[in-house]
Amino acid sequence: MLSRDPRIDDIGDLSWERLGGLAFAHENLARRVVLLHRKGRALACWDTQAGRLPLPAPKVEDAQALAESLKAAHPEALEAWVVEPEALRADLAKAQMGLSLDLGLDVFLRHIWEHRMQGPGLGLAPRREFMWYGLPMARLQKFCDNLLPERCCFTLAVFEGQELWAGLLAEFEGPQLVGLHTLDALPQAELASAQGIEAAPFLLALVSNTLQRPAFGWFVQKDDFAAWMRCADAEAKAEIFQRGILERRSHFDAAALMGGPGRAESLRPIPPSEG
C-alpha cells in the first residue's frame, strides 16, 4: 500500500506533533508487562512503569494462556507479552527469508507481525491485529485495495470545537499511498475559513483543486479522534468511528469513491458561508 518513493512534504510541525503524538502513544508509550523465557523456563518479568516483577510461574507451558493471566493480574497495563528472544529471532528470520523487496513497508511489517504471532513461544493479551502508528493496517489495506478509485486523496480534518486542530492529506494512486502532507499543503488564506465539520465539502473541494485528484475524508472532533487513535482494538475503533457519525460529531464523506462530486478540475471551493 505504501509506495516505495512517496512524496512527503508540506508537513507542518504543529500538525505533525499533534497527530504524531497520538500515533506514537500507542506504539511507544503504552504500559506493558513483559515476561521473558527460554524454552519454557521463565527468566524475568518486567512492568514498563513499575519495573521488575516477581516471576508469576517458574515455567511457561502455554505462552498465550500466561499472557492472558498476566493481563488479568495487571489490568492497568495496555497489554501483556510473553516472549522467547531466541525463538523470536528465529521466527523473524524465517518470516523475512521469503519476502519480496517489492512489498510496501506496511505490508512487509504486517506480514512479519502475523508470522510472529504464530510463534510457539509468544503470547500477547489482548490478542490484536497489526497496528502501525495506531492504524489497523489489515483493514486499511482491504479498504484501499477494494474501494479506492485510480487517483484520490484521503483528507483527515480534526476539529477542536469549530477550530481546525490538525489535518492530514494522503494521496493515493491505485492502491498505493504516494504522497503525505499536512493541511499546510493547502492555500492557508482559504483554509482559514474552514470552521467546524460543516466545512467538509469546502475542505474536500480545496483538497481536490490543490492536489488535482478527487478527495474523500473524515471530519472528526479531537476527543473522538484521540480515543480512536489510542484504542488498540480494531472493533472498538469501528465503534468510536460509527458513534461519532451517528451522534453528528463527525462526518465521513466518501462521495468521491463512488464517482461522486466529479473530477477535481470541475470543482470550485464553496466557502461554508455560501453553502
Binding site: 512517496p6 528470520a93 524465517k94 523487496l101 512479519i112
Partner: peptide
C-alpha cells in the same frame, strides 16, 4: 546494490537483515 544478494548482511539464522525504515524496507 540493494537488490543484489551478494551484498547482503545475514543474521544468525542466515536471513537477510531488513531495515524497516520509511519509506521502504531493504536488506
Amino acid at each position: 546494490i540493494i537488490r543484489d544478494p551478494q551484498f547482503w548482511a545475514l543474521d544468525a539464522e542466515g536471513a537477510p537483515a531488513y531495515n524497516p525504515a520509511l519509506p521502504a524496507q531493504f536488506p
